[in-house]
């Protein structure tokens, strides 16, 4: 039975879709069967980030309402053959998804995939609650910034109360993915540090993704960062995070700032 992960944050624009695509493809690169699912009804974007926007025929709602078979709606990635996408609907309103419909589709996906990675919409309303509802684990995406940390705290509260696991008295494993981290600004005390965020949210750290130009470049091209800029620090950080999700214990490298030549000569080596 597959593992269902929700990628969530409360706040918008922190990197849920980018992270879903990157973690999904990193897991799939390791030979795991992965389906990434877009829960953002009306504002789908996971298809675009994955470069599959012109291949969407049937979507999540078609399957949930029984108008299409799951196999008809799944879009297989052209680069990694174990990576699939279930796109969100663009035209329907968000009430078209029901608890029962989502549960049935997630249940079917669990049968044929090792990982079902659910990209949550922003906010704490119906769509976000449905995305987390049937998850076994959660990746809480946050930026080192006050409003993002506050919203992440709300989402953690909801994960502990509104998921099926929480209601059944089970634990839902939560992981913090700190994105858009700027080591130089953090070192100067201009940005919350990793320790600050961990201390405030008390959720174990899955990874630190450094702010990177490569991320926009990858999304421009419709390829997850792990495919497009495989050697960039952000891609490596996502790949390590995926390995931690699979249960490996890896030390978490603190991103280091890009130092000018002279200080690089004398400074620490980049991790």
């Amino acid at each position: 039975m597959g593992n269902v992960i929700v990628v969530t944050s409360g706040k918008g624009g922190v990197g849920k879709t980018t992270s879903t695509a990157a973690l999904g493809s990193a897991l799939a690169e390791r030979g795991q069967r992965v389906c990434v699912v877009d829960f953002d009804v009306g504002l789908r974007n996971l298809d675009l980030v994955l470069g599959a926007e012109r291949r969407v025929v049937y979507d999540f709602i078609n399957v949930a309402q029984g108008d299409a078979k799951l196999a008809q709606a799944l879009i297989r990635d052209k680069r990694i053959e174990t990576l699939y996408l279930l796109a969100a609907s663009q035209t329907r309103d968000k009430d078209a998804l029901t608890d029962e419909g989502v549960e049935r589709v997630i249940g079917e996906l669990k049968q044929s995939f090792d990982w079902v990675v659910c990209d949550s919409p922003a906010g704490i309303e119906r769509g976000a609650l449905l995305a987390m509802r049937f998850a076994d684990q959660a990746v809480v995406v946050a930026n080192p910034e006050v409003s993002s940390v506050r919203d992440a705290d709300r989402i953690i509260g909801l994960l502990d109360s509104r998921t099926q696991r929480a209601e059944g008295g089970q634990r839902i494993d939560k992981h913090l993915l700190l994105t858009r981290f700027d080591p130089a600004r953090s070192a100067r005390g201009e940005m919350l540090s990793v320790a600050d965020v961990l201390d405030i949210l008390s959720v174990p750290l899955l990874g630190i993704i450094p702010e990177s130009e490569e991320i926009i470049r990858a999304s421009n091209l419709g390829a997850p960062i792990t495919m497009n800029a495989g050697v960039s620090p952000a891609a490596k950080a996502y790949r390590d995070a995926a390995r931690r999700l699979s249960g490996e214990t890896l030390p978490i490298a603190m991103p280091t700032e890009k130092k000018p030549f002279l200080s690089r000569l004398f400074g620490r080596r980049a991790a």
């Binding site: 006050v146 940390v149 005390g189 919350l192 600050d196 405030i200």
Partner: peptide, 12 residues
């Protein structure tokens, strides 16, 4: 001075 300590305290 860095503003991160203020952010941290306000959030807490």
């Amino acid at each position: 001075g860095g503003t991160a300590p203020v952010a941290r305290e306000r959030l807490q």
